[in-house]
């Protein structure tokens, strides 16, 4: 029962075991390096993941000679940042992407959270089968999921109405499993005695949920919503199958392959990075401020 192990304490004791080791020691510098080698490699991997981001930000200040931003950096300009909406349809595609991902996120988060609660808090026949059905979409390559949806829409005669609704239907589908898994992880780790304590303190079922369960599950639900949003906003493959004539931002980028990539795309890319980075960092700071 007494699982009061705090990670802080175990992490702090990192070098505790060294004192008792036998005399023949590695030279100090070597030891220092060995201790930090993993950290160093980790940081190198992180740096590697940022390389294309640097490239995208650099290209957002590029003034290409032709209509398309090429691989090479030609001349510096601030111009792209003030003319984001100049390329035909770019801002419309961003707007559509936001509309799609916000709708899909809300739907997927609500449905997925309910399912997670059902699976963790209630035992009933068919729970194992339900878990399997929820896992299957994650084990299905996106191209198959997109193709099957398109085949269904076509056979139902929906091909003329492909667009916002069909994209949202599809996005909720592939976000749902991730939401369930994320919220479930949070609920499983939750101490059920807190809810029992609330019941013991005169909170009825609804009040217990509202005052204790929901606030405690919230970090998991928020994480799931963020995950759903980023999966949805960035999705290309499934969207490509279900969008019909509609153009989301990823589809716009893909479509520019033929016409040439306008440099404003990289402004949008930079903004996506900077804004979400700011939100996450801000959230982290806010979290630290109030313990």
């Amino acid at each position: 029962m007494a699982t009061t192990l705090t990670r802080g304490a175990s992490g702090a004791a990192t070098s505790g075991g060294t004192a008792r080791q036998a005399p023949p020691r590695k030279p100090r510098l070597g030891r220092w390096m060995a201790d930090r080698a993993v950290l160093f490699i980790g940081i190198l991997v992180l740096v590697y993941t940022f390389v294309p981001i640097g490239y995208i930000i650099a290209l957002s200040f590029n003034q290409p000679s032709g209509r398309s931003a090429t691989a090479a950096f030609e001349a510096f300009t601030w111009g792209n940042w003030s003319t984001i909406c100049d390329p035909d349809g770019l801002c419309e595609s961003i707007r559509l992407s936001f509309a799609v991902s916000i709708t899909a996120t809300i739907l997927a988060t609500v449905l997925g959270t309910l399912m997670a609660f059902a699976l963790v808090r209630h035992s009933f026949r068919g729970r194992a089968a339900s878990n399997l059905v929820i896992f299957l979409p994650m084990a299905t390559p996106e191209v198959v999921m997109g193709a099957s949806l398109l085949a269904m829409f076509v056979s139902l005669g929906f091909d003329s109405v492909l667009g916002f609704i069909t994209i949202v239907l599809a996005h909720v589908l592939f976000c749902l499993s991730f939401v369930v898994v994320t919220v479930k992880a949070r609920l499983v780790g939750m101490d059920s005695r807190l809810e029992q304590a609330a019941m013991d303190l005169y909170a009825n079922e609804w009040q217990t949920f509202r005052r204790v369960t929901l606030p405690l599950a919230m970090p998991g639900i928020v994480a799931a919503a963020l995950l759903a949003f980023s999966l949805s906003f960035d999705d290309f493959i499934v969207t490509n199958f279900t969008a019909g004539q509609s153009v989301t931002f990823p589809l716009y980028v893909y479509g520019s392959k033929l016409k040439g990539f306008p440099p404003q795309l990289f402004v949008v890319g930079s903004l996506m990075f900077l804004v979400s980075f700011a939100i996450v960092i801000g959230g982290e700071l806010w979290r630290r401020r109030r313990p």
Binding site: V268, G269, S276
Partner: peptide
């Protein structure tokens, strides 16, 4: 963080 930007752009 790097994966906040579009998959296609990256």
């Amino acid at each position: 963080a790097p994966f906040f930007t579009s998959f296609l752009l990256r």
